[in-house]
Computed example of a mutant assay.
Amino acid sequence: MATTKLPLAAVVMLIALLLFLPKNSFAACSIPHQLTNGQVADATAVMDDVNAVAACADAAVVPTGTPQAGAVTVFTGPNSITSGDLTGDVTTSGGTATSLSPTGVTPGTYNNASVTVDSKGRVTAVSSGAGVTSFTKYTVAQGGDAFIDVPLAADGGFAYHVFIKGVPSANAGIGFRISSDNGATFYSGSGDYKWGTTGSDSYVNISAGSTVGSGRETLIDFTLAGMNVVATDRFDLTGGVFSILSSGTPINGHIGGTANAVGSNNFNAFRIFALAGTMDGFAVYVGRLY
């Protein structure tokens, strides 16, 4: 069978690229045939040289370990590679998907936040600012109820901001009572905690002096403070009543004082109730101040 002869010019470019790249690119390779300019190249000799260069390239980089398909390529030496993982703030685990390391900050919404940022711009600490109030909404337990009960903080917090919003079912006042047994009972008798030091009322009429119209939107806004650590302590209410028929009528009442038959005990719940009718459509929003 006749030997196929190839012009030297057809292959010299490939050999030249492999032989004359900078020496620090890879180790020198030995080829079996030296071809010179002007020589008619034999195909077998050319293929021997090409195969020798390919074998040299294969030997230049050797896989180590058991590389995983799709993993990150890691050079373990000048002539060896394996699969590995990224480490640090961004990591991988046996693949190319990256994961950002947590900063330790709890996800959430922070009001009036105090924030600590590291040199990489990541939030490493955050807390809500002091004095910021987060309101909790309370509604009637079921339709037709005449009251809404609100528990207070178990750790003795004793100042609260209270909003009451709704439409009265009748032209009646809105009352405020207190409890010292977590809302199981509320003081309501003539011998119980009274409004100030006189009279027989055991509640504060927080809409006193206001005309709260039936079927009219009403907003009551007051601050509640006080603990009856001793018998002379009082729960004070200061604020105002706003409705279609009144504007900013002052609330300035208190429960407690010296004329009562109930021993000292921390108040831990209060009740907003209708002096007549029901509380349908009402909601009470309570935020602890301190």
Rank of each mutant, 00 (worst) to 15 (best):
A130I: 07
K194G: 14
A259Q: 14
Y193F: 15
G144W: 02
D181V: 06
A130F: 08
G263P: 11
L86C: 04
G199Q: 08
D236G: 13
T109R: 15
A231M: 07
A2L: 13
T223V: 11
V117N: 01
V212Y: 00
Q142H: 11
V40R: 03
G257N: 08
G240D: 10
D89P: 03
G131T: 02
M13F: 06
G77H: 00
A28V: 05
Y203M: 11
S180W: 07
T238G: 07
G281L: 07
D192H: 12
N265V: 12
S101Y: 01
V53W: 07
T109W: 02
V123R: 02
S128G: 11
L86A: 05
V11K: 02
T92K: 05
V11Y: 14
G287S: 04
S169N: 12
S200E: 07
L237K: 10
V40H: 01
V204F: 08
R177H: 14
Y160H: 10
T73D: 03
K120L: 13
T198P: 13
N266Y: 09
D145H: 05
A71Y: 00
N182W: 10
V53N: 00
P7V: 00
M13Q: 12
Y285T: 02
A10T: 07
D192F: 02
G88K: 02
T66W: 01
I255G: 02
S99N: 14
K23G: 09
L14W: 12
N112G: 15
I15Y: 04
S202R: 07
F235Y: 11
M47Q: 12
C56Q: 01
S210C: 11
C29N: 13
A146G: 11
G253I: 03
V117F: 03
L18G: 14
D155P: 04
A2N: 13
M227H: 09
S169C: 05
V40Q: 09
K165A: 06
Y187D: 10
A261D: 14
D49L: 04
T139W: 03
C29I: 15
F163L: 13
A146M: 01
G38V: 03
D42S: 13
G196P: 07
G213N: 13
G189S: 12
I255D: 01
I251Y: 05
P78F: 01
V284E: 03
V72P: 02
V284Y: 00
G95A: 08
S243Y: 05
L237I: 15
T98P: 04
V167E: 05
G215L: 10
A43R: 13
Y138V: 01
T87D: 04
V11A: 08
P7T: 02
N266T: 08
G196K: 02
